[in-house]
Amino acid sequence: MSLEVEKVTKVFGQNTAVDNVSFAVDRPGFIGIIGRSGAGKSTFLRMINRLTDASMGAIRFEGRNVLELRGSAKRAWQSDCAMIFQQFNLVPRLDVVSNVLHGTLNRHSALTTFFNLYPSADIHRAIDILDRLGIAEQAPKRAEALSGGQQQRVAIARALMQDPRIILADEPIASLDPMNAQVVMDALRRIHEEDGRMVIANLHTLDTARRYCDRVIGMRDGRVVFDGTPDQLTTGAARDIYGADASFSEASTSTSINALDETSRAMMEEAELL
């Protein structure tokens, strides 16, 4: 399984959101992309999935340039390349199973989808996936009744219903508390290891990138400024990625419960001194 990104660029008017990005992946790894807001991370993932067209460059998966795909070939690629979003993108009033079954939309007619007439095999598979993610008991509930962490696991289940080759996750834990963030990241890592699927995740915290990723790519102002292993992601490298000075503190980007507690305690102590 190979992915080659060659000089990919996206221009919006006078703004270059993604600037000449190139890298190659020769196996189904777990790749984290980090950087401050506006670094181009989300735009880049959307170009891989073909939700956004690139201005120039090539993205080749197993030798085929997916940026050139049109019509049914493009839709087939989007099934092979599932997307998980920060805000879950579920249908709040539908039950959990129906939301998961939406991962099969490309395989069924509009009539089947409109009347929720899914094959029993698909329904059983959806429940099996929910069980794998530890939320099978939530299957009959409306999606809006679930916690944020549970909703994100429903979104992961929907992605797995596509049986994708690649899973793209755009800030999958940005809106979650530390406990739910860990559950979601554990699930993504387990899917990568057990299924052999490539996972590319935009992340906003250094501790998460170090803990879960095999490889970390740092973006700043649309460009790749770091590409290495988690061990190579030093505080100095992080300062360069985030464009920060010597006062930069990793605790401010941490999802760790302990780190958050320490940050809160420091803020309280500072307030008491004022």
Rank of each mutant, 00 (worst) to 15 (best):
V11K: 08
A201V: 10
A174K: 03
H192K: 00
T16S: 11
T235G: 07
P230K: 05
A271N: 08
G134P: 02
P28V: 02
V21H: 04
V199T: 03
M161I: 02
N116Q: 15
G40S: 04
T9P: 01
S22G: 14
L45W: 09
A174M: 05
V21Q: 08
A201S: 07
H204G: 12
I48C: 06
S256K: 05
G103R: 12
R142C: 09
R265S: 14
R70P: 15
A24C: 04
A238M: 06
A54E: 04
S109M: 04
R50C: 15
A238Y: 00
L133G: 01
A174Q: 03
L101G: 03
I33C: 04
N116K: 15
A121Y: 00
A237P: 00
L111Y: 02
R46D: 08
G32E: 08
R107Y: 05
R197W: 03
I241K: 01
R153P: 00
R50I: 11
V96S: 09
L133V: 06
Q232S: 12
F23Y: 13
I34T: 08
S98H: 15
T253M: 14
I200Y: 07
D231Q: 06
S120H: 08
T43G: 12
N258E: 02
E262A: 13
L160A: 03
P172M: 03
R60A: 14
S264Y: 04
R70G: 09
T16V: 10
D245C: 11
V225Y: 01
P164G: 01
F23R: 11
I129D: 00
G32C: 13
L260W: 01
F12V: 06
R223C: 09
E144H: 11
P164C: 07
F61C: 10
H192N: 10
I217F: 07
D261P: 14
Q182R: 10
C81T: 01
M56S: 13
D53W: 15
A259G: 14
L206W: 03
P92H: 11
G32M: 03
A157R: 03
H108R: 04
K74T: 03
E144L: 07
S79A: 00
G57V: 06
A251G: 12
S254G: 12
L274T: 07
T52M: 11
A244K: 00
L45R: 11
F23P: 15
M267Y: 02
R107Q: 02
A187Y: 00
L111P: 11
S175V: 08
D231Y: 13
S147R: 06
T234L: 04
L176Q: 03
A259T: 13
M185T: 02
C81S: 07
